[in-house]
Computed example of a mutant assay.
Amino acid sequence: MQRKFAQVDVFTSVPVRGNPVAVVLDADGLSDTDMAAFARWTNLSETTFVLPPTVEGADYRLRIFTPAGELPFAGHPTLGSAHAWRTNGGTPRGPEIVQECGAGLINIRVDGNRLAFAAPPLIRSGPIDQSVRTEIALALGIGVTDIVDAAWVANGPNWMGLLLDSAQRVLDLVPDMAALGDYEVGVVGAYTDVEAGEPNYEVRAFVPGQGVPEDPITGSLNAGLAMWLRATHDAPASYVAAQGTVLDRIGRVYVDDDGDRIWIGGQSTTVVDGSVEL
């Protein structure tokens, strides 16, 4: 059966310089096995399937698969799928798009030429055991004392956040992916003397256990990091994170805390638009 399909580059306005997501826009009738097989075939960090909503108030339901399995929530697939849904005629019932997914209902707002999702609550937070910090430091090729702070920032994916002393330290990491194993590790470091329009932080994400050694640009991780950095490390209410630099991407994640919710936004662009036989 021919189904509407798009491949969207997320967190960038420049095609092929962001993080791609494959979106099947009329996935009704596909089995779990069909979805998992197609996600393995695309071999992208995530592939999504848009379905009719099952709860009141949602505009659509989204299922999100990595090559290794299903996720309850992920950020760049949320924004990329919302972009594809709007581009193909989707109209929200209210002022914001409401996405149903495994993590519940996710609000998505139009913010100029960007879409932004409301960061979901953390399902795991708090400090990371010293033994785990030591193990992760060794896998990243740094000393334990190079880690300024570390905390769980899980909001679907089981992210742990590591704060290093500088953005350059983040860029210099050469991780041992085998040693990282099934850990889902996000690393962040601040830039100094930031001018208007330049990023405040550099972020990298390592998820080898999900078949994604380094994710180019990661919405869920940035959402978790934003909640942590705002609460404990005096991050600005609005800031920009760069991600994907070492992968020759120019990802930009826009974080805005409006006092009620933290919004994670960015631009998206459709690179492939057509149909797929599924």
Rank of each mutant, 00 (worst) to 15 (best):
R169D: 08
A151P: 02
G126P: 11
A150L: 14
M177V: 10
D149W: 03
I108V: 14
A139R: 11
G189D: 03
G112N: 12
I147F: 02
I136Y: 02
L105V: 05
R169T: 12
I147E: 07
D146Y: 10
G143W: 04
V148M: 01
V187A: 03
P121I: 02
I128C: 04
G156I: 05
S166C: 05
A151H: 12
G161Q: 05
G126R: 12
N158I: 08
Q168W: 05
A167E: 00
L180C: 05
Q130S: 11
A179L: 14
A103I: 14
A151I: 09
M160L: 15
Y183G: 05
W159F: 12
A150W: 07
E100K: 14
T145H: 12
W159T: 05
I128N: 00
N158G: 07
F117P: 03
T145Q: 13
V153A: 14
P120L: 10
L162V: 04
L162E: 01
L162A: 06
A167I: 06
N107K: 15
Y183V: 02
A150D: 08
A118K: 06
I106P: 04
I108Y: 03
A137W: 02
L138K: 14
E135D: 13
L173N: 02
G143E: 08
C101L: 02
G102R: 10
L162Q: 05
G143F: 01
G186Q: 02
A137K: 08
L105H: 10
W152I: 01
G102H: 11
G102I: 09
G104V: 09
I106D: 03
L105R: 13
P157H: 04
L162I: 09
E184V: 13
V110R: 15
D172C: 14
P121V: 06
I128R: 05
N158S: 13
V170F: 03
Q99M: 14
V144W: 02
S131A: 14
G141K: 13
L140Y: 01
L171V: 06
V98N: 10
E100L: 10
L163E: 00
G156A: 04
G161H: 02
G104Y: 02
A119N: 00
L164N: 05
D172E: 15
I106W: 03
A103L: 06
V185T: 15
P157D: 01
N107T: 08
D182R: 15
I108H: 04
V174T: 14
Y183D: 11
T134R: 12
